[in-house]
Amino acid sequence: MLSYILFIATIGGIYGLLALSLNLIWGGVGMVNLGLAGFFAVGAYASALLTTVGHGPIAAGWLIALVAGGVAGLVVTLSTTRLREDYLAIVTLGFAETVRLVASNEIWLTRGTDGISGIPGPWKRALGPDFNAVYFLIVVLALLVVFFVMRRIDRSPYGRALRAIREDAQVAQVAGKPVLRFKTEAFVLSAAIAGLAGALYGHFTSYIAPDMFLPLITVYIFLAVASGGTGRPAGALVGAYLVMTLLESSRFFVEWIPGVTAVQRAALKELLIAVALIVVLRLKPSGVLPERVPPAPRPS
């Protein structure tokens, strides 16, 4: 049981990183990034390839994942500077699908739909059954670092500028804020975090394949951020664990229901998750931990 909880808490932590990444870009700047799964995949593949084909150290893999995610983010923002809202959402969704198609078809590089197996985990052999616990700590550490950076940004003048762009980019521009630079920086940082999450995922489960990076994961993270509280890092984090708790605990609830077949149970599980999320958003429309905008310091 303990190793299961550790496993789920680790995956929850990785979802948490993705939620923090999305919260920065969606909650912070108001850019709808439906391509989260794509950046997640870029990071996962970059690190997996470096450590399996390139035999590089795992830490270098994580670093490369950060860089690769960031570079992908830079390319996407610079090619979509004129797009906003729905149009940006469509292009980013397209980006994620493109990443998945490249991963499926460029077999020489990614081993195609077979996926990459045997991705090393840090000290996996030496740790044996303790691997899950140690990896959990690594993920928590990464999560905490990213969380505090996000909170620092959230409360800083930089964060206020981002929020101003979210509310009205034109007004921010008039006030002298370099909107494009802010957007690009935030997007690159957000994509880099998603890339890191991908690398952490790959080294934990030891296997990645294009099928793992379907848009479903982006939907989960949107649910996490929406239910946790858009625009607040702690909200994103709580939301990620809330979604993971719902996904997993619903397994156990449906086992108690007598007289239903396996299929009905699977359907009930999905239903339960949906109902729970609707209830959360009905009772707390702006999320469990709604955004708080601290007043700007008054000039003294």
């Binding site: 190793s3 299961y4 995956i11 739909t113 197996s117 294009p210 397994r251």
Partner: peptide, 30 residues
């Protein structure tokens, strides 16, 4: 992978049967 982890760690099953898609089997096998 999440479902398999639950079966292995919580239910402590001796065998898992019937994985269908190749990508699912490759992910669950390790």
């Amino acid at each position: 992978v999440r479902a398999a982890r639950k079966l292995i760690d919580v239910d402590k099953v001796a065998a898992i049967m019937g994985t269908w898609a190749s990508s699912v089997t490759t992910a669950v096998a390790p």
